[in-house]
Design a protein around this nucleic acid. Structure first.
Length: 561
DNA sequence: ATAAAATGCGGCC
DNA sequence: TGGCCGCCCTTTTA
């Protein structure tokens, strides 16, 4: 096709420049001026009107003198411009390891106008970050009877939390794509399961560090959730964006697919179903799973076949999470893209039969009952808030607390999910990765936060100079004081610093734990993608003790990557 | 070193 | 309502 020539006359183009001569900008401007002169005759350029200061000069068309009359001039600004709001006079972005917000936008952290993240009252939420909500008791007598049966005796004095704060060992490049989910083995203390974006399932014996197995042919894309069969420790169910549930025997690696929602393969994005949330109702022997079109499906674990029909539980697309109540598994909690978390009763379920609908401002990444009594609810929403409902027998109209916390969803990350500490008898400690970074002696690091959900207080920030990536996937061990983290393609196991190590303070690699250890410079710019660290590392104290293990680890990861 | 890509969701029409 | 555009603290690979 012949090139289209512009027939209409061109308006005058004004070039706007920074008056203050900055060192860095002068070079760029000189180049622009030269090229403007060379290209005066070009006419077919279409993009003049949308040019911004960042565009290259060859896209500029100044037009000819004859065409200028009668048109409003187009102003092209060559001033330095904010990459967020496109306005001059300020710039957003990293200044060293500190990110400076655009002042024209609402606070990146709490989403309120009038200040930026740097001055946000919720930036360090040790005292703030709690938005109180009314707490009314609206129970009927029957509810109280029910409540007495369910509510355990929660200790009145809160136990001291034990925060795993030191990387004990890690396997770098364990997965070839980012980690999407983690699950501890229900009985074997040193076994961690991990799923990734590629569909691979890893089984890692972190007690032996180098012992891992990767199953690569169970799913074809994202593993979103894994659950052990409660009656058989060997069998793991996994839900994937490939639309299948797999049931895998961890000893043999043999897996079956009790559910496949895309039996006809790829027919385009409008029909492709993905499975996200999954949980197991152990009383009924059912796997509950929900798809990306808002439907709940069930699999009978005894026959490994579908059970019942699909039921619409969330309207606008994806259901992100499902959690069965630990005390009464027929009661379950779902959350989804429709900005709701919903409570259901499996015994009387149909579309629209939810017992409660918990409204959020944006997508709800996760919703969990508290792990012991199942009477509290903790949700993570993309509006940068954790929400806590103190009792499912209380007022469910609004959360008991909203805790501002940076876990804003970036589409390239696995969604953040705040997870209860299953060992905390007071059911208040939760762990969640943080999105925005903190300037840690010159390095921008993203801590993993421990939050007391009963107060909103930030109990600890856990980070390591070697971990520069964001850690959206975290899980606390059901019995031991261990934290497992999935960060980009890496897995980490954190354990509490031993007493002897605390006294010696020899380790260069300081973990920042609020109120416990001071911030100290570690290895400068230590980065997990540095060549020397590519094959995995162990914490320094451990390294010196176990040279043999480390070399095994190196060989192991080399062979497999 | 720099660029592109992989991608989910909100907002806008 | 649906389709399309655009995106603020990524991470990796070319």
């Amino acid at each position: 096709m012949a090139p289209v020539t512009r027939r209409t006359s061109f308006p005058k183009v004004l070039i706007e420049r920074d008056s203050d001569s900055e060192q860095s900008s002068s070079e760029e401007e000189e180049i622009l001026e030269e090229e403007e002169e060379e290209e005066e005759e070009e006419e077919e350029e279409e993009e003049v009107g949308v040019s911004t200061a960042n565009e290259k000069a060859e896209k500029l068309d100044l037009g000819s003198d004859a065409n200028r009359k009668g048109k409003a001039p187009i102003t092209i600004s060559l001033k330095k411009v904010c990459k967020v709001c496109k306005k001059p006079g300020h710039e957003a972005g990293f200044k060293g390891a500190t990110y400076v917000d655009c002042p024209m936008k609402p606070c990146f952290l709490c989403k309120m106008p009038g200040h930026t993240t740097l001055t946000c009252p919720h930036r360090v939420s040790t005292e703030h970050g709690v938005v109180p909500a009314p707490r009314r008791k609206t129970c009927k007598p029957l509810d109280y009877v029910f409540e007495r049966q369910l509510r355990p005796s929660l200790p009145s004095i809160k136990p001291k939390y034990v925060i795993p704060d030191q990387v004990n060992c890690a396997v770098i490049r364990y997965h070839s794509r980012r980690v999407t989910c983690l699950e501890f083995h229900p009985t074997k203390n040193n076994i961690l399961l991990s799923g990734d974006k590629k569909g691979q399932l890893g089984v890692w014996d972190f007690g032996k560090v180098y012992e891992k197995v990767v199953y690569g042919n169970i799913h074809s894309c994202l593993v979103n959730n894994m659950r052990f069969n409660p009656t058989n420790d060997c069998m793991v169910y996994s839900a994937s964006s490939d639309g299948t549930i797999s049931c895998t025997d961890l000893e043999t690696g043999i897996s079956s697919s009790p559910m496949n929602l895309n039996p006809d393969g790829w027919q385009g994005p409008n029909t492709w179903k993905m499975l996200n949330g999954m949980d197991i109702n152990s009383e009924k022997g059912l796997v509950l799973v929900a798809d990306s079109f808002g439907f709940l499906h069930m699999v009978d674990m005894r026959s490994n076949n579908r059970s019942g029909d699909a039921i619409l539980i969330h309207k606008k697309g994806k259901v992100v999470g499902i959690h069965c109540n630990p005390i009464q598994p027929d009661i379950f909690l779902t959350c989804g893209n429709d900005h709701f978390a919903r409570i259901w009763d499996l015994r009387q379920i149909k579309a629209g039969s939810s017992l409660y609908d918990l409204k959020h401002k944006r997508v709800v990444n996760s919703a969990y009952f508290s792990p012991i009594s199942g009477t509290k609810i903790l949700t993570t929403s993309q509006d940068n808030r954790l929400r806590v409902w103190d009792s499912i027998f209380g007022n469910m109209d609004s959360p008991s607390r909203e805790i501002v916390h940076s876990h804003d969803f970036n589409r390239h990350l696995t969604p953040f999910k705040a997870e209860w500490d299953p060992k905390d008898p007071s059911e208040s400690l939760a762990v969640v990765g943080r999105y925005i970074s903190e300037n840690y002696n010159g390095a921008a690091l993203h801590p993993i936060d421990f939050i007391d959900t009963s107060t909103g207080q930030l109990v600890a920030e856990v980070m390591d100079p070697n971990i520069t990536t964001i850690s959206p996937v975290n899980k606390l061990h059901p019995r031991d004081d261990i934290l497992a983290t999935g960060s980009s393609r890496s897995l980490f196991i954190w354990k509490p610093k031993e007493k002897s190590e605390l006294v010696e303070e020899k380790d260069e690699r300081k973990i920042v734990v609020c109120g416990k250890a001071e911030k100290k410079r570690g290895k400068k710019n230590g980065n997990i993608s540095d060549e020397s660290d590519d094959e995995g590392f162990m914490s320094k104290s451990k390294k010196s003790k176990t040279k043999k293990t480390e070399s095994k680890l190196s060989r192991f990861t080399k062979d497999n990557c």
